[in-house]
Design a binder for these strands. Sequence first.
DNA 1: ACAATTCGGATATTGAATATCCGCTATAGC
DNA 2: GCTATAGCGGATATTCAATATCCGAATTGT
Lengths: 161, 161
Amino acid sequence: MQLRNQVEWALHCSAVLAGVPPGRFLPARALAEFHGVPQAYLSKALQALARAGIVEGTLGPAGGYRLAKPPAAISFLDVVEAVEGRASTFACAEIRRNNPCASPAHPPTGPCAIARVMWEADEAWRARLAAVSLADLGATLAAELPAELRDGIAAWVADRT
Amino acid sequence: MQLRNQVEWALHCSAVLAGVPPGRFLPARALAEFHGVPQAYLSKALQALARAGIVEGTLGPAGGYRLAKPPAAISFLDVVEAVEGRASTFACAEIRRNNPCASPAHPPTGPCAIARVMWEADEAWRARLAAVSLADLGATLAAELPAELRDGIAAWVADRT
DNA sequence: ACAATTCGGATATTGAATATCCGCTATAGC
DNA sequence: GCTATAGCGGATATTCAATATCCGAATTGT
């Protein structure tokens, strides 16, 4: 079980877009160049983010993407679910119903005990992701990144918006 | 991102094996019939459990599988990792290194801030699965399953060991 | 000893999901 | 209005999971 690499790209793109000056747009081409990933495929991830209302895109020259909400209002979970979907990682196929001892007339009531445990773990995972916002990430990066690199990135982004 | 259906099968098989009388073995054929899944493919999951030291198999007539440890010593995480592997769900490709602003002479130190958040969530998921043992599952099932069904299953299993 | 039965591993085949690419349409500025 | 530039959606290859099949090795009961 592995997350799509688009999840990683979407998170990094969201982090960069959080630093775009208000009212400006950063084109997908720039985001792809910045991260060194194929532009055509990255577009898919950005489109998924747009459908989820996390970013918004605009056509034409001077077009591109920007965050649709303040960074504090966007969690890791929002981004991950926009790309991966909202389905649980565990799909219960209800194989207990195939049990030859069970009477088809009395189907089991309530969700399977095994599925419940798996879904609880899934919830714990989501809760952790929901607890961290893009603003939190920005604060962490601001504290960790060398000032020189941070300014370099800001200039690079400003140059393409 | 979705877990393999073999995970579900492995968990259900473990639950059944926890009810096998001590010293006896239940063949894979019976487990496949009980759950209504293809026997040849289920064998793969059982072999993975055997490699992980969760179950042990024995050849010949009256052979089959049984738990290799007491149910209280086997967690959901043990079973899931035996089938899915121990790798994190999030693979960091270090795309921050492709950043055109970063100097290749000064590579970033420590893990990426985004990966750290993802890995923390992954740990929370694993912690939840590690907290539930097969003994816990057995207690839940004993409390929820109708007595008639429980006895029927026990008889069905005893008949094939 | 023999034969039936079981796990173990290796090997195809199918089908879905992933990664990738390309053409279409719409916008903004000259 | 024209042109260059951008996002959008559909079409394509490639990878991987899911399934079936086979044979070999080991073991138990007759």
